[in-house]
Design a protein around this nucleic acid. Structure first.
Lengths: 149, 149
DNA sequence: TATTGTTATACTCTATAACTATA
DNA sequence: TATAGTTATAGAGTATAACAATA
């Protein structure tokens, strides 16, 4: 085990790059009064709504406690609503409000901008390969990779 | 801007995957009484020691305040030492202690294990491509990609 | 004055575990 | 008893900004 072997950990470099990307993106969405985790939550809702918190937790790789806390904040911001389940009073579903849904394209544009800033340095082929690999990895972990189109 | 376009954000998927990898790795290194950020810090030191905190901050994409806090914790654990700079009494350098250096191969083995768990699902070529791309991205951001060998 | 680094403060993110309400 | 979800608590990670010491 020599020094150069140590640099070969994919998880290490992925964390390094991902943190840089997310930190910069956090700055961008702060102007919209939204955090990165909130964007992620809203993006997932956009595909899945109406969805119970338990399913969202599974799809996002988070605990239900974490989802609950995030949901509460988005509820307070008026971006998300709860809908009661008539069959089971313990359960409910989460959806975007109109205000929340209207914010999606704005935030997506910022995400595009941020992606460009970091990934346009890659060739088109490299970028596509990276996307493909990331989706494979997400899918294998049961994270919410939308069905192959 | 339709729904399917929204799934194409590289940053989104990278964060999803990176968080899953780091969370699992955190569980693994917890048994060594080390956090993921501490491992990252120690790995960087392994390549750069002795190094002033300011340089480490730059190489790791963190603020000097964050480095200071991490360094203090590793100092308390006996894994890192400070060395005074005789020319400039404001400055100092950080290095691993023998105990810290001995821990590196143990932690690196856990990182290998964790990488295998997540990335062995890829073909060898895909894995190598991913590594190459991540290093390109890290380098362009001035993060401490060790010199090309 | 400028620079190196620390400290104080605050907030996000997340987990674990205890709890509540309903089934 | 089991399940859906919330709440309480705690700690990691990080930033910003004020500060101290030295240059």
């Amino acid at each position: 085990m020599n020094a150069s072997r140590l640099t070969d950990h994919t998880g290490y470099w992925m964390r390094m790059v991902s943190n840089a990307v997310s930190q910069e993106f956090a700055r961008k969405v702060a102007g919209q009064d939204v955090t990165v985790a909130e964007w992620s939550f809203m993006r997932a809702l956009y595909d899945l709504e109406p969805v119970p918190p338990s399913v969202l937790a599974e799809k996002m790789g988070m605990t239900k406690g974490a989802i609950s806390k995030l949901a509460e904040r988005l509820l307070a911001k008026g971006l998300v609503v709860r809908t009661e389940n008539k069959d089971d009073k313990r359960a409910h579903s989460l959806s975007l409000t109109n205000e929340g849904r209207d914010k999606i394209p704005v935030l997506a544009a910022l995400a595009d901008e941020n992606d460009a800033e970091f990934f346009d340095t890659l060739t088109r082929e490299e970028h596509e390969t990276l996307n493909r690999i990331l989706k494979i990895l997400a899918e294998r972990r049961g994270l919410d990779a939308t069905p192959v189109d």
